[in-house]
Design a protein around this nucleic acid. Structure first.
Length: 308
RNA sequence: GCCGCGGUAGCUCAGUCGGUAGAGCAGAGGACUGAAAAUCCUCGUGUCGGCGGUUCGAUUCCGCCCUGCGGCA
């Protein structure tokens, strides 16, 4: 028997967190974050992390679970999210997975089997090789080992060519295994917004982040000794501020870049969702009646899961 | 009012020694199986300000007009 799960996904800035907390209050449950940036401690403003007040009433899982200098992965997320979901289910509650990271959520719901070949020093060596001999030379190595796989990855995509090689050289395969249906007995809600409205909202939100002290947050992290090139600081809002602090760009340019990159990101998120036909979409606007919307979701859940 | 320089893709501009035009940015679409807010791929027709003239042919030359900026009055 599959475990129950509610998912709320959608592009950034559509109100997922808010809807998640409201729904959790209504059905008496807990939130599991499905976001690749909220996992980092100390990155709060730029990730629009739910604040302490929001986390006080409703228990949130998978937020602040690793240090900002640590690496994380989709595979690690998959394991930890599965554990959290089981834990909440065992309490007789239906967990609410809230987040926008396409790979994380899709791999969890559809049961991707990530290769057991873990991260090794090999990868760094391969990247160094590409640095020296070019991306194409690296890609040719992959082609020699697994032509079918190589055909699916563009030679310029060094990051993925390197990972594929790492797996191939360890004698493993990048699994494409898929199972029938979803791993969970899941109700998947999607929040969407008209593009122009969403972009306006993103622009506002970025302004707000700077007002709240995004620059200061980054300065603090760096002052505490966090190296500038760690994975967490590659996130949108962080890498640009680091460029600003380094004197490479002005503050206005920095703000613009953060907004632009967030817009592009929102668009990219959408392409993940297009490959998930089981999403139940709900359009939101600036004047959405959230209480009403969450009530609709709740009603659907009551019917689906036979809640009280 | 006079002089000068502009008016070309949403924006900033390039260019056509006369054969209807191209970059950057913005934007759009896509890929994605241990970095994923990462990484990577693809996409540029617009009354070339308006109206006339010269010409086989004008966005390109000429005239007038409209308009922006700077200077002189």
């Amino acid at each position: 028997m599959k475990e129950k799960l509610v998912v709320i996904l959608g592009p950034t800035a559509t109100g997922k967190s808010r809807a998640g907390v409201m729904l959790a209050e209504k059905i008496g449950s807990e939130v599991v974050s499905g976001d690749s940036m909220l996992i980092y401690k100390g990155l709060d403003i730029g990730t629009a992390k739910p604040d302490k007040a929001q986390q006080k009433n409703i228990l949130h899982h998978l937020i602040d679970i690793v240090e900002p200098w640590e690496n994380f992965s989709a595979a690690a997320f998959q394991q930890r999210a599965a554990r959290a979901i089981s834990e909440v289910n065992s309490k007789g509650k239906v967990p609410i997975l809230v987040g926008g990271t396409g790979l994380y959520i899709k791999s969890l719901l559809e049961g991707y089997e990530f290769s057991s070949a873990g991260e090794s020093g090999l990868r760094r060596g391969l990247c160094a090789f590409a640095e020296k001999n070019g991306n194409y030379a690296l890609w040719e190595k992959l082609q020699a080992l697994d032509a079918a796989l190589a055909a699916q990855i563009h030679p310029n995509n060094r990051q993925r060519v390197a990972r594929a090689l790492e797996v191939a050289m360890s004698g493993n395969k990048l699994s494409r295994g898929k199972q029938d249906g979803l791993v969970y007995d899941a109700m998947v809600f999607g929040l969407d917004m008209q593009r122009t409205a969403l972009y306006a909202r993103i622009n506002q939100r970025v302004e707000e982040m700077f007002r709240q002290g995004l620059v200061k947050e980054v300065e603090g992290l760096v002052a505490d000794g966090l190296p500038v090139n760690v994975q967490s600081l590659r996130g949108i809002g962080y890498k640009e501020v680091i460029d600003y602090l380094a004197g490479n760009i002005g503050l206005d340019a920095c703000r613009e870049l953060v907004a632009r990159n967030t817009r592009r990101f929102a668009k990219r998120q959408g392409t993940w969702y297009k490959s998930m036909p089981y999403i139940d979409w709900h359009e939101v606007t600036d004047s959405t009646d959230w209480d009403f919307l969450v009530n609709i979701m709740q009603a659907k859940l009551v019917e689906r899961f036979k809640l009280r």
